[in-house]
Design a protein around this nucleic acid. Structure first.
Length: 245
DNA sequence: CACAGTACAGACCTCTCTTT
DNA sequence: AAAGAGAGGTCTGTACTGTG
């Protein structure tokens, strides 16, 4: 069987990192378009290879490393270039989640609206982006977070490049409380039960619960009366109890 | 000054994919 | 098949800024 041009295989298979058929179709289409484009230019240049993970952004392969900023090719910059600039200038010594979040959020925009010059995005693009996130079933808080990241990147890079623009991703209306649920803390009796079980089993792992608590609160009270880890969150408590008990 | 909005950081979770 | 790694989603909190 013939192999694909530039590849030592007859097929390219990789995860599209989604369970949504709609998103998968969009990403597959985009990858196919990139392959077409790549093969078209194959004889004349060594283009960035499709068939790799994270095709959406120009700085492919930098998700866990601070991204190198591509030079802007126009008056401002494309969104993918803006992400590179943003991460180069603001991403130093920032956690990997900061880089991932920036790339993921802008990747979503590129998936839906394309990789345009910052000045070329319109309110219609922003609204379409909002609608696509809502169609995916994201909650208001997640949409808010994604928009916040995109907005801040565009604002920062526009400022860096000396461009005065109205960010179309600002002041986009959506229900920020849609689908948002409260996270209630574990009731006190449940926490006491965990403590009690830990004391009953009395081994090294169980005492980690006390160690964790003692980092935050002076161990002034006996174990059973000691407060649980300071502001220990409900899910963390569950995980802790689930792992240790 | 109070409040809303913005721009994050961080913790924790589920799910998928890869490796063993 | 199990374990581990990584991606992505959710919620909460803080600091700061703009506005009425």
């Amino acid at each position: 069987m013939p192999t694909w041009p530039g590849y030592e295989t007859c097929k390219i298979a990789y995860s599209l990192r989604t369970r949504s058929a709609k998103i998968a179709a969009a990403r597959a289409r985009r990858a196919a378009d990139q392959l077409d484009e790549y093969w078209y230019h194959l004889r004349s240049q060594d283009a960035a290879l499709p068939g790799m993970h994270r095709l959406r952004l120009g700085n492919v392969g930098a998700s866990t490393q601070p991204s190198a900023a591509p030079e802007p090719v126009s008056g401002t910059a494309k969104l993918s270039e803006a992400v590179g600039i943003y991460l180069r200038l603001k991403g130093k010594d920032r956690p990997v989640t900061f880089h991932r979040g920036a790339e993921r959020s802008c990747g979503y925009v590129i998936d839906v609206c394309g990789d345009k010059d910052l000045m070329a995005y319109t309110k219609a693009d922003a609204n379409r982006f909002r609608d696509s996130l809502m169609e995916r079933g994201l909650t208001g808080s997640s949409i808010s977070r994604i928009f916040g990241t995109v907005r801040s990147i565009i604002n920062f890079v526009a400022s860096e490049l000396g461009v005065i623009m109205t960010n179309p991703f600002g002041k986009v209306y959506f229900d920020r409380s849609a689908g948002v649920k409260d996270r209630n803390p574990l009731p006190d009796d449940a926490l006491r039960k965990v403590q009690s079980e830990c004391q009953h089993l009395d081994d090294d792992l169980r005492w980690l619960v006390k160690t964790d608590a003692s980092k935050r609160e002076p161990p002034s009270a006996p174990f059973l009366c000691a407060p649980m880890p300071w502001r220990l969150r409900r899910k963390r408590s569950c995980a802790l109890a689930g792992c240790i008990l």
